[in-house]
Design a protein around this nucleic acid. Sequence first.
DNA 1: CGAGAATTTGAAACCCATCAATGACGGTGG
DNA 2: CCACCGTCATTGATGGGTTTCAAATTCTCG
Lengths: 251, 251
Amino acid sequence: MYAITTNSKAEPILPSFSNSVLLELFQAKPVENFSTGRAVFWEGDPAKDVFEVTRGILRLYRILPDGRRAIVGFVFAGEMMGLSFQDRYLFTAEAVGEVSVHRISRRMFHAAVDSSPHLRPELLSHLRDEMCAAQDQMLLVLRNSADERLASFLLLIARKTSGEPERGTEIQLAMARADIADYLGMSIETVSRSISRLKWQGIIALDGPSRLTIQRVRALRELAGEVERFGDEDIPHLAATMGRQPVQLAR
Amino acid sequence: MYAITTNSKAEPILPSFSNSVLLELFQAKPVENFSTGRAVFWEGDPAKDVFEVTRGILRLYRILPDGRRAIVGFVFAGEMMGLSFQDRYLFTAEAVGEVSVHRISRRMFHAAVDSSPHLRPELLSHLRDEMCAAQDQMLLVLRNSADERLASFLLLIARKTSGEPERGTEIQLAMARADIADYLGMSIETVSRSISRLKWQGIIALDGPSRLTIQRVRALRELAGEVERFGDEDIPHLAATMGRQPVQLAR
DNA sequence: CGAGAATTTGAAACCCATCAATGACGGTGG
DNA sequence: CCACCGTCATTGATGGGTTTCAAATTCTCG
């Protein structure tokens, strides 16, 4: 998921989720639509089905014993979900906007996979990718600076939607600040402050709360720990104003 | 791994790692020994083999871009390792003491699994358990109090070695404070301070740095978030001194 | 028993969570 | 069309938990 750590090469591993032949299993199934905030399934429900998301984004979360919500991942269009369950869903899946999915029963899914020597290694491969992503997410949260986590998150979203980001790449944040906060393990206010800091440093620009533009890719990737901090090829002359609080707020 | 969160029932899921028929695949293989600090394989190496640990403990870690070490897990005797790799090892595996393993090539392992309808679902099941454990570990680290993380960790170790802990259960900490710190995402000093706090509160007792005894199981489980904090059946009369710094240090 | 390593403890600084207030936006109804 | 309200995002101030630097103490092992 975060190319930095898990994959030897710095290529996004997500496409492997999407190009899967496994996805073909879903195509015969009818489309189901979920409107904003609706749950596809709940944590603890019997894990009867597996899904493919064809439109929109799903947020996966669990409620901790103390009542807080922890988002364990997002599922984007073109990705499958539910392959890694035993007999019960481990988390709730909720639509972050309008979402469409194909649904297939776990029994049928596994029957199909079992009977096909082609599909079997693919399922394994998929599970391993998921494993890999979960581990990366863990390491991301461990790396403690809020700004670093946010940088990684922005790169993640950018890659999911528009491939490898360059200067000028626009990012559409479909989820609210609260979602980002619960995903990155920090408070809403800290997410907001981190975004503001990136803005003051000229790394990103905002066109409204949920729409932003990457301006200094290299700096963003350095923050995310993807590259060594050395050359600063983009907009080095802004450095003078970077270190401290803004003299004046944009927008 | 942490029964609290992932499993509906509060039974340890680890035994499922151990009782696996998959383990029989390893028995024909010779034993390899690794002494303290030796690596079984390195992060980034081609993932040629899978392993069963028959004695000792392995620590699995990755080095973050900034040079810090993150321990992603420990492998105990009776557990398998390496099933969730694609083509390269995602982390380094290092002996925490004297360790013995069986080694089998991934190719042979998969050939065996592929040809046996019995083994296939077991591999899947195992991968899902690993997935599950990784997610729990993530949530554990997110839940921020240092004492809570340490409580969960102690319960984990206790269960790995002597089943469900009761009052008086002894825990042998095979790994150093630095290992615990890198596993729980905190500093050595904070680990030490957390242990001291649990000691002041009479929840555990120390017989040397690496040997401790659980004295108030319920309180420990409450800290770990496994049970609601309500009754305090063990040693309730100590409560008066619990809240603040020690008036005098024990030991 | 002694030396080096590991652990524990102390003090200060920092980062982030929390509480609180303000500002921006979107929708509804007058 | 605009005022109003609720939600979401931003910003400020404060406090607490952890990290960091530093030193003392304990443990381990030859």
